[in-house]
């Protein structure tokens, strides 16, 4: 075992995959000498050269579209969109091209789009958003949202080996976090399997990406008050492991879904709808969503943290839900 950061395991995983398969290459803004804004590709340029660690101009739509073309022609590109906020500029290529290639044109598109959602660093309204909701309703795109180093590596390997476009979320608050992991990189983890990261019978808490970290911390606090929360880390949003969710909800009867993005129009609403459709009679209480405020993310720390779920708000909301009659 060793103790390493999320950044470190992403870097090691990229390195291992680039070594394993010559058709893999990285492309994005400032990923070479600079190593990416969070250092996830630091050192790779020296090892693999500028053909495979390809710095680009600031042209998100072209980066994405060119990668899609290269993918269909036989490469396995991994592109980086520096902040998830900038993905708006790549949406057309992902939605209108990547997502249509297999179902309409009958072509494989082995593409990974890595990007960094999330608030918490005071970067302001255009460098802090969680925009995965844009893609959740687009059939044809897979979405992985790990919450720890082991899953980060295992899911990234799966994403890279998948023959479909994958949106891969690396929450910026995860990068500096340290995790206990094996000396060897984990095996790839298949998509569509949520992980029960804590068992409990009083309520179910569902989360993904960095919110899963907070959910576990909140669950530990709840336990001090004799409330045992079952925490489900989704790991992938598409495909969604609804079966694990339903099974848990059937045993707890109470469920809360946490989402960092704004409440309205988020993916938590979709999960809530599916739970209501499939397990309504098992629910002791209405499904609860705890999400970001319907506001842009402000810069000042005091304002920012007030806008998104925190351990305190999760603990309070979960406790209220568990104790409600």
């Amino acid at each position: 075992m060793r103790n390493i950061t999320f950044t470190q395991i992403i870097r090691e995983t990229l390195e291992a995959e680039l070594t394993r398969d010559e058709t893999i290459f990285l492309m994005g803004e400032d990923i070479g000498v600079y190593g990416g804004p969070f250092g996830a590709s630091r050192g790779l340029l020296e090892k693999f050269g500028s053909e495979r660690i390809r710095d680009t101009p600031i042209s998100e739509q072209a980066i994405t579209g060119i990668a899609i073309g290269a993918a269909v022609a036989g490469q396995r590109p991994i592109i980086e969109i520096m902040f998830m906020d900038f993905i708006t500029l790549a949406v057309d290529q992902m939605v209108n091209m990547a997502a249509k290639l297999h179902p309409i044109y009958g072509q494989n598109c082995p593409l990974v789009l890595r990007t960094t959602p999330g608030a918490g660093r005071g970067y302001g309204a255009t460098h802090s958003q969680s925009l995965e909701r844009i893609f959740c309703g687009i059939p044809g795109i897979k979405i992985a949202a790990p919450s720890n180093a082991r899953d980060g590596s295992a899911l990234l390997q799966t994403a890279i080996r998948d023959n479909n476009p994958v949106l891969f979320l690396e929450h910026k608050l995860l990068y500096p976090m340290r995790f206990e992991v094996d000396d060897k990189l984990p095996e790839p983890t298949p998509f569509g399997y949520a992980k029960i990261t804590r068992e409990g019978e009083d309520l179910t808490i569902i989360a993904w990406s960095y919110m899963s970290v907070l959910a576990l911390q909140a669950a530990a606090k709840l336990s001090n008050d004799d409330i045992e929360a079952e925490v489900i880390d989704l790991r992938t949003l598409a495909p969604l492991d609804i079966d694990t969710i339903i099974e848990s909800v059937k045993s707890t009867g109470r469920v809360m879904i946490i989402e960092e993005g704004p409440l309205t129009g988020g993916f938590a609403g979709e999960i809530a709808a599916q739970i209501t459709e499939q397990a309504f009679e098992y629910l002791d209480y209405p499904v609860k969503r705890l999400a970001g405020d319907d506001l842009p993310i402000p810069s000042a720390k005091s304002l920012e943290l007030n806008c998104i779920p925190s351990v305190a708000t999760i603990t309070k909301a979960a406790s209220d839900l568990a104790l409600a009659d």
């Binding site: 290459f25 053909e51 739509q61 072209a62 994405t64 579209g65 060119i66 990668a67 899609i68 073309g69 290269a70 993918a71 269909v72 022609a73 036989g74 490469q75 590109p77 057309d92 290529q93 209108n96 091209m97």
Partner: peptide
Amino acid sequence: GITGGSIPFATGIALDASI
């Protein structure tokens, strides 16, 4: 069907050829 949509796509095919 997207006006201009294939411009980067064609270029990605050229990138593959160059690689």
